[in-house]
Every structure is written in structure tokens, then in C-alpha cells.
Design a protein around this nucleic acid. Sequence first.
DNA 1: CCATATGTAAAACGAACGTTTTACACTGCA
DNA 2: TGCAGTGTAAAACGTTCGTTTTACATATGG
Lengths: 175, 175
Amino acid sequence: MDRMTRLADTAEQVFDRHGYTASGMDRLTEAAGMSSRTLYKHAGSKAQLMATVLARRDRRFLQQLEVQSVDALFAALEDWIEAEGARGCLFLRTRAETGGDTPEIAEAVAAHKAAFQKRIAGIVAADLGNGGDPVLAEQVLVLFEGATHAAVYRGAEVVTAARTAAAVLVDRARS
Amino acid sequence: MDRMTRLADTAEQVFDRHGYTASGMDRLTEAAGMSSRTLYKHAGSKAQLMATVLARRDRRFLQQLEVQSVDALFAALEDWIEAEGARGCLFLRTRAETGGDTPEIAEAVAAHKAAFQKRIAGIVAADLGNGGDPVLAEQVLVLFEGATHAAVYRGAEVVTAARTAAAVLVDRARS
DNA sequence: CCATATGTAAAACGAACGTTTTACACTGCA
DNA sequence: TGCAGTGTAAAACGTTCGTTTTACATATGG
């Protein structure tokens, strides 16, 4: 396991649990088990490190969402939350923390959300077996985002509620 | 307009736009137009100031949600976003930023979300005209939370998508 | 007209911030 | 044997953090 992987993995955990601004470089170097000199050589800066973390998380997250039905989409979210916990969306949180003033972070967030929305639209189209349904896709996206954030304080059961709600909407759109 | 009101109002804007940690006391004193000494006399500390801000926002937000139907609930969210913009939920953002390590903030967030969930359950019960429907209430909450957060990057139109989705679910529950 | 309260302006506090530098140890290849 | 390359440990950089303090101005009420 090379140093950049180890650094990005531990940084993702620290940033996710304590927030971007509140996570000092001391905590990151200690968690990654390397000196600050090595960290800066590999990561460039704190903001670049966060951008790297977000890019890797984007890949990992979208990989988990490689499904062909809306029901499987919410099943995947259940799996994700069970494995990672429910702390809301790291992308939106980070973007809000930095107020969009950090270009590399703002770009990583925008890229992720665009890809995410596209993925949802594709899943809805595959599920319906036609060219897609933009309104339904938007509703599924809202349910997904809502489940992600409501799970923070209502628990993982809200994903089930979102899942059955989505099933109703898909069923309606199919006929 | 007394000083505490002026302070809380401007602090809410600053915190909401730039985040809790990233908002230094200098920016707060300057925005509120008062010396740091006066600020600390009235607010106690930065964390207490944020807790005060959250408590006031909780009152204002729930006031806007004093409606009797699910449709009016999402209409109220549309109004809120038009007036305040879409930056996600300040409560969840602040809680995530502090990692729950600041008791007064964690308590304010927990109190708000409990009241919010109770309000939704009440609106669903009023709309259905019966004792309520816990599953439907959870689904409406997820749609509301989802619209709040999706609006950040998809625009206020997602609220309309959530609104029509909620109408479908309510209609189904009524029969 | 003095006393008290309440405010401002600004300096100062120690701590923590992100980042860079210094000094030194270990590897692998000529 | 020697020389890069890559790592660590730790001090130091200047800045900013949240908070307190000092010194001084202003208004109100007995």
C-alpha cells in the first residue's frame, strides 16, 4: 500500500468525521503516520488533499451505485450507510464549509454531483426500459439525497421509507 | 432593535454563508457593528452565539411551517428558499462541522430536528384527517430534507419535484 | 454634577493554524 | 565507498484563532 493511498484513506476518515476546517494538519499527519514534509510532498496542500479525497470518494461511491434499478439504488445506499455510517454528504458539507472559495474543492464537488445526477437518470431510464423520465429521475434524486441526510438524525430506517416511496413513483411512471 | 437581535441576525447570515468554523470573531464583530467586548458580554462565546442563532432560526423556520397540508408544506419550503437561498440545512452543517463535540450546538440541533419531525407528523395527520401515518410522515420528511439539499446544486425546481412526489404518496395513503 | 452603566477602539493573550525548513537516518544503486 | 533519493522528527515561519484586558468616551438618572 503506497503512501498516497494510505494518506488519502486516513484523510478521508478524518475529514468525514471531524470536518474539513476543524481537521488540522497535525491530526492528519498523525493519523496517516507520516511526517508533514512527506505529506506535503505527496498532497501539495490541505485543499489539494481534500480535492484528492473527494475525487477518490466519487469513484468509490459511483462504483457502489452501478445498478440497473431504482430499488437496487436504494439497496446500495443501505449498504453504503451500514458500512460507512450516516454523516450526510461529504461533498456538500465540504463545499458549504469552504463557501465555494476553494476552487479545487468546488470543482471536485460540482463534478461529483453532475456525475451523480447523470447516474440516477441512467438508472431510472434502465429501470423504466425507455429513454428516461426527467421528472421521476429528479424525484429519485431528491429521495436519495433526503435519505442520506435524514439518516443522520433519524437512522438508517429512513432509507427503507425512501425506497418504498421510490417504488410507488416508479410504478406510477411505468403505467 | 436591541443589540442582541442585531448580533444574532447578522451572525446567522455570516454563519450560514461562510460556515461556523470559517467565520472568525473579527468578521462577526464587524458585521454586527460592535466591539468584541460588547459581543462577548451579550453572546458569551462563539459556541453560545451559534446555539442562540440556531434557537432563533428554529423558531423562525417552524413558524414558516405552520400549515395544515403536505402541499402547503412544500409551498412553504419554496417560499423559504426563494427568500433565504439554498445552502442546505444550517443545523446539520453546523453539527457536522463541530462533530458533535460542542454540547450547546449538538443540543440545539437535536432539539430542532425533533421539533421538525414532530411538525411533519402533525401536518401529515392533519392532511389525512386521521391519527396520522408514521411511514408517510417519514417519507415526507425525506422528501423535504432531500429538496433542501438537492436545491443547493439542482436549483429550487427540485422542490416542485418533491411536492408532486409527496402529493402522489399522500393520495395513495388517503385511499 | 458626580456616579454608574454601557459602549468603543485597540492592544495583547496563549494556542493553533497551514506551511516550510533544518538536521539527520536509512535505503538502493554506481 | 559514495551519492542520490526518500523518509522522519522537530523546530520555526508568520498568521489567525477565540478571548480578555486596558484605556477611554458617552449617556442617563439621583
